[in-house]
Amino acid sequence: MTSLAALRKSYERAELSEDASHSDPLKQFEEWLSAAIAARVPEPNAMTLATVGADLRPSTRVVLIKGFDEKGLTWFTNYDSRKGRELAGNPWAALQFHWVELERVVRIEGRVDKVSDAESDAYFASRPLDSRIGAWASPQSQVIAGRSVLVANAARYGARFLLHPPRPPHWGGYRLQPDTWEFWQGRKSRLHDRLRYRLDSDRHWLRERLAP
């Protein structure tokens, strides 16, 4: 087995300077996300979501961004899942994108709220039929006896709803409203570029360079 301590990579693809970056972090994020999509990196919309439970233990999982604008970044999931329960008790969370091929990371922190029922309904209706049935079939984060439980549930709800399953009451969207962004660009000799944007007391974005 290769020694993990011996693994090395020199980051030399790009740089991130104050002059070449946007003063608005949302525009900077849009530019980087568009670049990741154009570069055909695997699942450029995948982001790690970190939450903290009542026991103060953090947990992470990968979710898919489904939209972003000046109101925040949106994803959809089961409200009864571990992440849903933790967000109900502590609405502060963090997101991270890692586009390995571009040697870039984006980290976002802020408060999370549920999106409106109308927004959740609209997105749910746009999903493939098997995904809509799956939202009913999976008691997400609960212990089950085996995969047969999911298969049986999917068959039962498929027969019940046919081609028109409604959105489950336990399923919908969340939106994180950022108060902090960080953009990380890998650089040679581990002298990486890190630009952080944070809201000041007047709700303006303050851009700062962080040491790597």
Rank of each mutant, 00 (worst) to 15 (best):
L87G: 00
E30W: 06
W99K: 06
S120P: 00
A122H: 09
T77K: 03
L49I: 05
R111C: 09
P44Y: 04
F29I: 07
G146M: 04
F68Y: 14
I133G: 04
I133C: 09
S10I: 14
G67M: 05
V100N: 13
V63Q: 02
H164M: 11
W205G: 07
L16T: 08
L199N: 03
R61L: 02
G158V: 06
Y197E: 08
P44M: 08
K66E: 06
R207T: 04
L7M: 13
A5V: 11
K27M: 12
R194D: 04
L191Q: 03
S141I: 05
R85L: 12
S81G: 03
F97Q: 03
A20D: 13
R111H: 12
F97V: 07
R209N: 05
T74A: 11
R207A: 06
P58G: 02
H22D: 14
R85N: 11
A35E: 15
E70I: 13
L7I: 15
Y174V: 02
L16H: 07
K9N: 11
H98Y: 15
S126D: 01
V151Y: 00
A14M: 10
A50V: 12
I144D: 02
R82L: 12
T51Y: 09
E182Y: 01
P91M: 06
T180L: 14
R127Y: 02
W136H: 04
A36N: 05
S34M: 12
V100I: 13
K114E: 08
G172D: 04
L150G: 03
L129H: 14
I37H: 11
A137N: 02
L195Q: 05
V63D: 08
S3H: 11
S59W: 11
R85C: 00
W99L: 00
F68T: 08
G173M: 05
M1T: 11
S120A: 13
R127Q: 06
R107C: 05
S17Q: 08
Q96M: 14
R194C: 07
A211M: 12
R147G: 10
V63L: 13
L163N: 15
R127V: 04
V41P: 09
G146D: 05
A94T: 05
Q28W: 05
R57C: 00
F124N: 06
G172R: 02
P91S: 13
A122N: 01
W32Y: 03
R147M: 05
R196A: 10
G72Y: 06
F68D: 01
L64C: 03
S34Y: 10
D69Q: 04
R57I: 12
T51R: 10
P165F: 10
T74N: 03
V106S: 09
G173D: 06
H170Y: 11
I144K: 10
L7V: 14
L26E: 01
P128M: 00
Y123H: 12
G110K: 10
H98F: 15
P91G: 09
E31Y: 14
Q185H: 03
G158Y: 09
V62S: 07
R194W: 00
A38G: 07
A94W: 11
D193I: 09
D130A: 13
R194I: 02
A35C: 09
F97L: 10
P128C: 06
S141W: 05
L102H: 09
I133N: 01
L199V: 03
P58I: 07
E86Q: 15
M47T: 07
